[in-house]
Amino acid sequence: MAERSPATRRTLWLVLSLVFAFLYIPIAVLVALSFNEGGLPTAWSGFSLKWYVSLAGNSAILSAALNTLIVALVSTAIATLLGTLLAIGVEMRRHHGKGLEALIFAPMIIPDIVLAIALLSFFSMLNLTMGLHTIILAHVVFNLAFVCSVVRARLKSFDWSIVEASTDLGASAVTTFRRVTLPVILPAVIAGALLAFTLSVDEFIIAFFTAGAGRASTTLPMQIYAMIRFGITPEINALATIVMAVSITALTLSQQLNRGMTGQ
């Protein structure tokens, strides 16, 4: 496609510049404001880290961040284990029904609000006291589906005959998994785990509905939502910048792992 006229090429670059401006200006403004002494978009009054400092002293935000970390770590651990096993199970037997595919695919496309109210109804019908544990139960649902899909993508090109060879040579199922299957899929498992972690850190609606009453189990997105509804405060800009930096780092890492893998 090299023989485009200079005019066409200029138009295409213009399109790209506009789209990138649209995508990045809102975020850039937020990040810039987080370093603005005055904290308001009205005027730049000098570089300052004071909003980050005041963030560090905000106990509501700190406890919400801790809750989010607990939920994300525990749900990621469970989801990574279950999702990986599910992926291996599904890929090992080539023939499986459409129902199974739908069941695995559903958590990724079901509207958040529907899963949120479904779990709320379910938990309250069971008279379960809701808190961090119910958020974790809920987050594992979609996290395991995402881990499973990442690991399955890797297993598509997996040569199952080496598993057979390993068992034929007398290795137990556990040894085979540990020494043969796992090393091959490990990058995908880690990539899936990082994806799950990020999704869990960012997830708002399902956590909001399954957290129960009281502030004890408020997660960071719930805290951010409450702050945003209240209005613009410079602290959110700082918080937003940190949260963005964390999730973008985790996902870039996840993507690199995936790419390094397919490059091999």
Binding site: P26, I27, L30, D202, Y225, A240
Partner: peptide, 12 residues
């Protein structure tokens, strides 16, 4: 990046 934050950017 976080959905809430991207939406908040538009409030700003």
């Amino acid at each position: 990046s976080n959905y809430l934050i991207r939406t908040y950017a538009w409030i700003v």
